[in-house]
């Protein structure tokens, strides 16, 4: 053991003699510096989606004040929309969240909450690990 440590010291001496490396120029090795790994969880929260949905709804003519809109608010029953009106809203929400409401789903959606749930389910987050310029 002692002999081994001694030989190591010698080897270090030899290395230093061959190529002196100033301590200040030594740089720590960083593995995958500045790269975040892909997260599969959606970065949107339910509150975010609801708030943004309400702001989209605000651009339409509503029968009720927007602060009374919640997850249980139904488009046709509570907001007084007809079927075309609420499809307008769905298309506007698609643009807002970059999702596409499938035909079967969109036909069954009745309330704001169902919209929010669908958006949360189908929203694909931009990958954090990627360069925004490449994205």
């Amino acid at each position: 053991m002692l002999r081994f440590a001694y030989s190591m010291r010698n080897a270090a001496k030899v290395a230093r003699a061959v190529r002196p490396v100033p301590a200040a120029r030594m740089q720590p090795v960083r593995f995958m510096n500045g790269v975040k790994f892909y997260s599969s969880t959606s970065s949107l929260t339910k509150e975010d989606v609801l708030a943004r949905s309400i702001s989209v709804l605000n651009s339409f003519e509503l029968k009720v004040p927007s602060n009374s809109i919640g997850m249980e608010t139904e488009f046709i029953k509570d907001l007084g929309m007809d079927s075309l009106d609420y499809n307008d809203v769905l298309v506007a929400l698609e643009e807002e969240f970059d999702v596409v409401f499938d035909d079967n789903v969109a036909n069954e959606i009745k309330s704001v909450g169902e919209c929010v749930d669908y958006v949360l389910k189908s929203y694909t987050p931009a990958q954090e690990s990627l360069d925004p310029e490449i994205r």
């Binding site: 740089q27 510096n33 999702v99 694909t124 490449i134 994205r135």
Partner: peptide, 24 residues
Amino acid sequence: IPPQRPGGIMYDRNAPPRYSSGPV
């Protein structure tokens, strides 16, 4: 098509990361 959706340009792709600083 939204980029991350099926058929979108980023669907199923993994663009390599760009490093902010090059080699020393």
